[in-house]
Write a protein that binds this DNA or RNA. Structure first.
Lengths: 200, 200, 200, 200
DNA sequence: CATGAATGAGAGTTCATTCAT
DNA sequence: TATGAATGAACTCTCATTCAT
């Protein structure tokens, strides 16, 4: 009867994008308790519009998180066949930190743990990252006892570290990424006191 | 008529301690949105009593945070004259992570940034930690380009890292502390791309 | 250019009927708080279409109610010249209850009290029912002190009564119609303590 | 530690009563969609106070309903040993209608169907009413085929009937109670077309 | 002093209604 | 004309905070 899958209306798509951007900023500034009303105001739409696009606040959070993870999954995929696996892994971590530098939303991840769309992109990220890490390990760029799970877990650490400062220099995270990456290198490595966690 | 200070103080001090403990547990379980009512219930006192001891929720948070920092300041002070500065620094980081492992309350720090009592103990921690780091650096246990600010900022990283897992093994953080500490060591160190932040 | 009235009217009339049916079902299932969105979905049209046909939700309700009353008015008219006035009245009450049995929408009546179209068909029902009741009274099938207003008011009672049960047997209302009708009969009638209400 | 079961504070008890009264009036005037805010305003308390006394709107409704049913259960109990069982039953129905005349809240019953407190008092009412009906039946005051379930279901009918009028005379319900009660009498009774429903 | 009842601002969410497409 | 995106008021409910008891 109606043309199936009618193309998304231009203004609706624009509002969705505006909302995601506004929500990111609001969450970044106010933390997890940013309110839907403030997000709507920042996006320049009415409160009801938020719920038209994202039935619950959790759905909005999941949309933000899965978008961020998707970018990382794609980056990992792109770097997977780099000729220099060690450099590729470092670049991946650089991209990951840089993305988060702009908006740290790690605290949102716990709120979206069960969401299926988040799970899906996260699984993709795990798969792509595993290739990256395996190649870096095989090539001797990182220690033999480092797993994909280790890298995944440490991915956000540089950003978290600088967030303890009230006004960190914009690229300060690179300092801590360098330190951590030095810790991943084989030279002068001490044995690790605990086994790597199981891949999720 | 009644001795001016003693008898009530006993009760009051007990309640204060009960409240701090209950609040820690509640924040650890429920995150930053733990409610004053639940904290009061857990402590076995009435809601009003919470506000008698801590005029606002922020004050309660500041009290928890400053207590935690005080413990670390004292640990740093105690370790300052250790004969093995490298081992002393590692032990300090172990203590710090271990403390947070039991109750991660890092998310509370931002809520208590301006509080003067927090500032005071944090200054003390900075001072004591500086001694510790300086000696480790001088002794060659850590790189020449690592400052007290670096160590302070990275202090919580091992705990943050494992918190990305839903149910981390209790000692898993030791794995990441080891990796990071390897990164702090002079052997095989690469130059750091960014200068250390100014001491706060 | 296009023939002024015909071609669209077919679609429009179909949609109107679909909407009325969907609304009836939705109100019956969900009660007075059934939402316009759900009604539209059930009818397979967009929300805006509901408001094209019925400018407000109240208008939609009034349309349903007046349609129901019109059916009753017609039934009363048809039965008005029956040779057995007592049986005719009982049949009218049976039809009325049976109609409501399928969809009890009595709760909608209060929402449509002022609507002129409702008033019109209700007046017709009153007129036709008056004939029916007058003839039943004159023929001795019911008491001398029963008026059209009485019958009109008691019309829905059998359905209301069974609605107090969670899952009434489909024909249980007949039991209570029989009891009430026995109360209308002249045999063994006790005088009534209050006068009949004025005809509206 | 604290005196257990400390007596309810006078002002709290007063507020609870004010709220119940205000809620009854508000529901009677506005129907089931009366808002908690309006109820609070009518009672002269803040919105939050409503939720202190009744954790959800449903709890408030259940409290009203169970209070009403309790009054009826007590009335039935009191009338159970009357020397004239027929008159006792009629008086019970009169009390029931009179209570509802003041505030018809039948529509609230469905909202509180699952509540255990409501169930409890309703069970008591059923038990007491059964005695009343059994004695009336045995004494020949009502038909042999009328059960407690019948009377329970028909209890509200007189009020429902007059509610179809916009401004019914205050005692008009007595007219319909008389008609219905005549229908319950043995004289001139016709056999009933459907069996009585099972006792709930 | 401790208590917990009261407060009221603000949270997420729903929904009748409007209007650009 | 039909659509469904946008609106914004109203809803139930929560919670830090105040204050009479």
């Amino acid at each position: 009867m109606t043309p199936p899958d009618r193309p998304v209306r231009a203004d609706a798509a624009r509002n969705r994008a505006l909302l995601l951007a506004a929500a990111e900023e609001e969450f970044a500034e106010r933390g997890p308790s940013a309110s839907v009303a403030d997000i709507a105001r920042r996006a320049g739409v009415a409160k009801g519009t938020v719920f038209r696009h994202f039935p619950t606040k959790e759905d909005l959070i999941a949309a933000i998180v899965s978008e961020h993870i998707a970018v990382l999954a794609e980056a990992a995929r792109r770097l997977a066949d780099s000729p220099d696996p060690g450099a590729a892994l470092l670049e991946f971590l650089t991209i990951a930190a840089d993305q988060r530098q702009r908006h740290d939303l790690t605290f949102l991840q716990s709120a979206s743990d069960g969401d299926p769309r988040v799970t899906e992109v996260r699984d993709a990220l795990h798969a792509n990252l595993e290739t990256l890490v395996d190649r870096a390990r095989t090539s001797g760029a990182i220690r033999a006892d480092i797993t994909e799970a280790d890298v995944f877990l440490m991915m956000c650490a540089p950003i978290h570290i600088v967030e303890n400062l009230p006004a960190p220099a914009p690229l300060l995270w690179q300092r801590y990424l360098a330190i951590i990456f030095d810790g991943l290198r084989p030279d002068g490595a001490h044995p690790l006191p605990q086994p790597a966690p199981a891949a999720p």
